[in-house]
């Protein structure tokens, strides 16, 4: 390890596919809007990348109302990928992001392999998109609504199709709602993914005992997100980092620098911060500063030197 003296510059940069990030911290899709919503609190240029709301070919209204419930240490939420659609994203949201010197990653969703490929093609022609994150936690209409992300063949097919439709960096995002997440990570790598992010929300539910109905109204179930998700996310990131050669991006419950460092020690190249952005709009900046302070304290000049250094 390269030793540095206190106060010296440390290298936090990370490479994901063709993208060079100045630091390893970015927002998780759906918790940061289109970036502009946070402009009163942070400078987007300070982030490693910006990942925007899940985007589909056509606009989507998403889940029913009563979408969010606080649970101990987290949320149970069902937004259903409400979004303005890819055309409106390019026309109305992307121009704002172009003024910053930060890679923009678009999280995409679809109901068929063709839809994923089509959205990717459209985004690839737009100026100012650096990467595609594939949300495979979506129902596959052709397979009776079974989620792409719980079927290794469908996962492979989507990643392969998206790769075939673009030269941009492609990063599938794995769901934790599977028995062995490494099977899916391998399928992504074989299909040509440049990086892998994980995890999305873990499906859960809550019942109001008075009305005997779901606390999420007609949505019935939702994704568990936030700090309570972290141990599961960390375990899965650790498992995946051991079996793939491409960079892994850790997501799930990150709320402070120590949380982010745990993921990096477990093998993650970078991290996404989700739910906690909603609580503390400056948390990603605090995490970047905290990672830098940690490296200085440990006398390490380069983030890469500690990656995966968890001793099992």
């Amino acid at each position: 390890m390269n030793k540095v003296s206190s106060g010296a510059a440390v290298d936090l940069s990370v490479t994901l596919g063709k993208m060079k990030l100045k630091n390893p911290v970015m927002p998780a899709s759906g918790t940061f809007g289109y970036g502009r919503e946070f402009a009163d609190f942070i400078n987007l240029d300070d982030l490693g990348a910006v990942i925007v709301k899940g985007t589909t070919l056509r606009p989507r209204l998403g889940s029913f109302q009563h979408r969010l419930l606080e649970i101990p240490g987290g949320s149970l939420c069902s937004i259903g990928i409400q979004n303005v659609g890819v055309d409106s994203f390019i026309a109305d949201k992307l121009p704002y992001l172009r003024q910053f010197n930060v890679p923009v990653i678009v999280n995409i969703a679809g109901e068929s392999v063709e839809e994923f490929a089509r959205v990717t093609e459209i985004l690839s022609k737009a100026e100012g998109v650096a990467g595609i994150e594939i949300n495979i936690s979506c129902p596959n209409v052709k397979k009776g609504g079974m989620h792409f992300g719980v079927d290794p063949d469908a996962t492979f097919a989507v990643v392969r199709a998206v790769k075939g439709a673009t030269d941009l960096t492609v990063m599938p995002k794995l769901t934790p709602n599977v028995t062995d997440v490494t099977v899916f990570a391998r399928a992504c790598e074989e299909a040509g993914a440049d990086a892998i992010s994980l995890i999305n929300g873990l499906v859960g539910m809550a019942i109001d005992v008075d009305s005997r109905r779901s606390k999420l109204g007609k949505n019935l179930t939702g994704g568990v997100t936030g700090p309570c998700l972290k141990p599961i996310a960390l375990r899965m990131v650790w498992q995946v980092a051991q079996v793939v050669g491409i960079p892994v991006v850790g997501v799930g419950g990150i709320a402070c620098p120590e949380d982010a460092l745990e993921f990096i020690l477990a093998g993650a190249s970078a991290v996404e911060v989700g739910t906690y952005n909603l609580v503390n709009p400056r948390v990603m900046i605090e995490i970047i500063e905290g990672i830098r302070d940690y490296l200085i304290k440990k006398g390490v000049s380069d983030l890469a030197a500690i990656r995966g250094s968890f001793e099992s």
Binding site: F32, E37, K53, G62, Q65, R67, L68, C77, N277, P281
Partner: peptide
């Protein structure tokens, strides 16, 4: 009133029909 995640229009959890 709706349960709110962010209060600033980022999370889309507070929708009303």
């Amino acid at each position: 009133e709706r349960n709110m995640g962010c209060g600033i229009g980022a999370c889309l959890s507070c929708v009303c029909r």
